[in-house]
């Protein structure tokens, strides 16, 4: 492209009257290695614009709102917490089991006492026998 035309385009460019196509021609001109010395000062400008358009975002588009997701997790966590709470409160605790054991031990002890008492009571039968015999021999005034 003739330098003449480029100079005219540069002037138009700074007045803001170039078209998109003309600006493209300018970027092409300034992207080459050899640029007229009196225009060299403008080179960074056009090179920068070409470079700047190459930058892209690395991140993928995520269109699920973050807030909504955290609420679901919160409700799941709450449900689990409540379920665990209920389960533990229904299951007998260690204290309850100890009490049950103590109860059985006590019952066993009481049975033992009871059995021995019964043995004692059997022996009492002889006493009854003795009284009957005595009544036969020595009749006491009875009602």
């Amino acid at each position: 492209m003739e330098l003449d035309r480029i100079e005219k385009l540069v002037d138009k460019y700074f007045e803001g009257t170039t078209t998109v196509a003309e600006e493209k021609a300018l970027r092409t001109y300034f992207s080459q290695h050899e640029v007229a010395p009196h225009l060299a000062a403008y080179q960074p400008m056009f090179r920068f614009f070409s470079e700047a358009k190459k930058e892209t975002s690395e991140k993928d588009i995520r269109i699920h709102p973050r807030r909504k997701r955290s609420y679901t997790w919160l409700s799941v966590a709450a449900t689990v917490a409540i379920a665990l709470g209920l389960w533990f409160s229904n299951k007998p605790s260690a204290k309850d089991e100890e009490a049950l054991l103590a109860y059985h031990e006590t019952m066993q002890a009481l049975y033992m006492v009871g059995e021995n008492l019964n043995k004692g009571a059997d022996k009492m039968e002889y006493l009854n026998e003795f009284e009957q015999t005595r009544n036969k021999i020595l009749p006491v005034n009875q009602k």
Partner: peptide, 15 residues
């Protein structure tokens, strides 16, 4: 257009 021209000229001056 006016703002664009102004911006381009500022860049030119700095350059």
């Amino acid at each position: 257009r006016v703002a664009l021209s102004r911006a381009r000229k500022t860049v030119r001056e700095e350059l």
